[in-house]
Amino acid sequence: MKVGNLGNEKRGIKGDDFEQLFNAYYVSLCLYARKYLGDEQQAEDAVQEVFYQLLQKKGSHSHYKDVRSYLYQSVRNQCLNDIRHQKVIKKHQAGVIQFNSDDKHFFNDIVNAEVYRQLADALNQLPKQCRTVYKLSLEGLKSMEIAEDLGISVETVKTHRKRAKRFLKERLKNLFSLLLFGL
């Protein structure tokens, strides 16, 4: 699926398209919004508001080349609105949030969010059980504990772990040598 091309001209997104978009971007947008609002709940509220507007066809995204511009721009605007409406003003006064509204940060925050989103996607291409094993091992569980949790044999767990490791090594290894930036 090429999410970047979603969005029918002059019409809102609905049904399956909407859910695909939601599933693909919701979490990333929430973590992105958290940079502005500093609070998980408020971040989720803001992102849900944006999707709600989209669902109601109030959001006009058709003139955006990439639907992602629409989403990130809208979430950012929503966050700025929330801040203006003083929902989070106390936290700002307390210095909890370092808030940068300039374009430079906007650009780099998106790069940050989008790279991580795509890497998380790559991990999701692992078969489901393999992924679960990998995640549990990432969180420090031993093979035996994982086997117990999932009701599979320790050998199977070990196989999954090796497979995930190989996959990641191939997909995500550092590429110092491949790209010489002259840094």
Binding site: G4, S69, Y72, F106, N108, V115, Q118, R171, L172, L178
Partner: peptide, 16 residues
């Protein structure tokens, strides 16, 4: 240049 183009390129690099 859009941040999405940059992000896509970096993600590609990191995914080999």
């Amino acid at each position: 240049i859009t941040p999405f183009e940059i992000a896509d390129s970096i993600a590609k690099l990191l995914k080999h």
